[in-house]
């Protein structure tokens, strides 16, 4: 039997199967892309609430040690949150209600993570520290959600007194020494890897062709 390039070269009649396989892979990518379009505000935007998708409320439990309290700007307070009955996440994202008016120690907590003090699966206990940044009667909105359709929210009213605190984030140091090292590495590393690979190609693989 005459062997073609490689002992197990691809036959011509396998081309159809390859085309079908590539078509299937493209379909997977298209499906994933369409799923992203359905929730444009979800990733990174801090905008969409859990209840936009987790529409069945009432099954998961969510409670805090207090739902109405007084606070002063700049003075941190801690809320103990307990979620149960299958809860997978607790989240307090900045885009919900007046959450952006607080500095929040932990915006998301997953069941079983290091911040979850409840060892049971489907139950989360966590302590989150809030620091009020501006005065007023403010609402902290907390969501819990599970892997499926379940989600529940809890609103906590905080009456804040005091003066506003500006939280300007200092711009990142773009002139740092590491940045310049990285810029040099962006040229040196790819070039040196390319040279090493070319040497491999000539000395090791070309001999076999």
């Amino acid at each position: 039997m005459k062997l073609e390039k490689g002992a197990y070269g691809m036959k011509r009649n396998q081309l159809t199967k390859v085309v079908i396989a590539i078509g299937f892979l493209l379909l997977l990518v298209a499906t994933a892309a369409s799923s992203v379009r359905a929730t444009p505000g979800y990733s990174g935007g801090d905008v969409g609430e859990c209840g936009d998708c987790h529409e069945t409320s009432g099954t998961l439990t969510l409670a805090a040690n207090s739902t109405s309290l007084d606070a002063t700007t700049g003075d941190a307070f801690t809320l103990s949150l307990d979620a149960g009955n299958g809860a997978q996440w607790i989240a307090v994202l900045a885009g919900w209600a007046d959450n952006s008016q607080f500095s929040i120690s932990q915006k998301t907590i997953e069941d079983g993570s290091t911040n979850d003090t409840n060892a049971a699966s489907g139950a989360i206990s966590a302590e989150i520290t809030f620091t009020p940044l501006s005065p007023g009667t403010l609402t902290i909105r907390v969501w819990t959600a599970a892997g499926g359709d379940l989600g529940t929210s809890l609103d906590i009213t905080v009456t804040v007194t005091g003066q506003s605190i500006s939280t300007t984030t200092p711009p990142p140091d773009t002139q740092g020494e590491l940045l310049w090292t990285w810029r040099i590495m962006m040229i040196v590393l790819p070039v040196s890897v390319g040279v090493i690979l070319l040497i491999f190609g000539v000395t090791v693989f070309k001999r076999r062709s």
Binding site: K5, G6, A7, Y8, G9, V204, F205, R208, S209
Partner: peptide, 12 residues
Amino acid sequence: RLGDRVWVGTAS
């Protein structure tokens, strides 16, 4: 370029 001959030989 080489096909499955890349697996022939220790170095390659």
